[in-house]
Design a binder for these strands. Structure first.
Lengths: 184, 184
DNA sequence: CTCATCTGAGACATCCATGTCTCAGATGAG
DNA sequence: CTCATCTGAGACATGGATGTCTCAGATGAG
């Protein structure tokens, strides 16, 4: 039963990250179950959306722990974080597209807590002289998440190869688009 | 009358870029008119969304022309483009969040045409040795747009000062988050 | 096999946004 | 002032997604 919940949530992410207004029929079909069974697992649409949001935030938080972003060199910590997050980029794309989620105080608090950890990572990196100080830590955090969501969308639509996605994200975010003529 | 259309569209962008599922009531209120008048200007919700999409694409295209992205140094061309686009970042945020728009063949063709111009800009920059070749031109194009939409959201929610937005976008995208220790 | 449980299909009822209409008040030109 | 036009408020019908229910068939343990 618990396995069913997770597989349904996973399927829901695949649909909702691209089409936040998808009907429950489509979500059920994507999960390989009927609309009736979907209703048996989740009381309603709102509950389903909320569960997906919780899953996304849990995975995000787990990624912060796995990557141990509070430890070691800030740049390496961010690289670890990207490697861990990219496989679940679709979840971040879902979070980015489902703004209604932030009406929920609990989800909002979870998000704020986790975003603070990421901001702290960038602030630490700035203090260590690793990250640029001309760009605020909050903007770096937000931009990192925007690009992560973008990776999720691009992979889902087949515009970006999953194997290239971590490289594309971290290289663009860390190094930018300009060729470093001074170091070549 | 034509002035009314534009002001309504402008208000609609402000609402829809943050909440793509906003009711027509909210849009009408945001525009300072009644739902009845909104219906008099636009036949229905679909028509309104489509008009906003067309406006966004027209502005985007005008920005490409104004910035003359086909001329001169690729980096400078991109900087000009960012400067011109940032004031209308909310429109790009709307485009990014309204995936349903791309069911329309006309809008889809317009987008594809304009995105091709941006991709060509990056390809040119890569050939000139300005942009990195490890990242594909299409990914650079997509990431640029993702960050642009992110700027739009951040400004709308008050997380980013409008005056800083162009700098934040172009500096992060071109130079990345890393401090350039080798050049300092 | 037998029975309990789960599932899918379908038939409803319900809710809500949308679309349409009317009418009274406001606006503005003459 | 007078009339034409526009607007806002509200009532009303409509459509579609959602939520609930039933029932027959499938599954699976004993």
């Amino acid at each position: 039963m618990a396995i069913d919940r997770d597989s349904v949530l996973k399927a829901a992410v695949g649909v909702l990250s691209r089409q936040p207004t998808a009907h429950l029929d489509e979500i059920a079909r994507a999960a390989g179950i009927s609309r009736a069974t979907l209703h048996r697992i989740f009381p309603g649409r709102d509950a389903l959306i909320r569960e997906v949001g919780l899953l996304a935030l849990r995975k995000y938080n787990a990624a912060l722990d796995t990557a141990a972003i509070e430890d070691g060199d800030a740049q390496l910590a961010l690289r670890r974080l990207a490697e861990v997050l990219v496989p679940d980029a679709a979840l971040c794309a879902f979070l980015a597209g489902e703004n209604q989620l932030f009406d929920d105080p609990e989800l909002c608090a979870l998000w704020e807590n986790q975003d603070a950890r990421v901001r702290a990572l960038f602030l630490r990196g700035q203090q260590e002289g690793v990250f640029r100080i001309e760009l605020s830590a909050s903007w770096l955090s937000e931009a990192f998440f925007d690009l992560l969501a973008g990776v999720g969308w691009a992979v889902q639509d087949g515009r970006l190869a999953p194997r290239d996605s971590a490289f594309a994200l971290i290289e663009l975010f860390l190094g930018g688009a300009l060729r470093r003529t001074s170091t070549s």
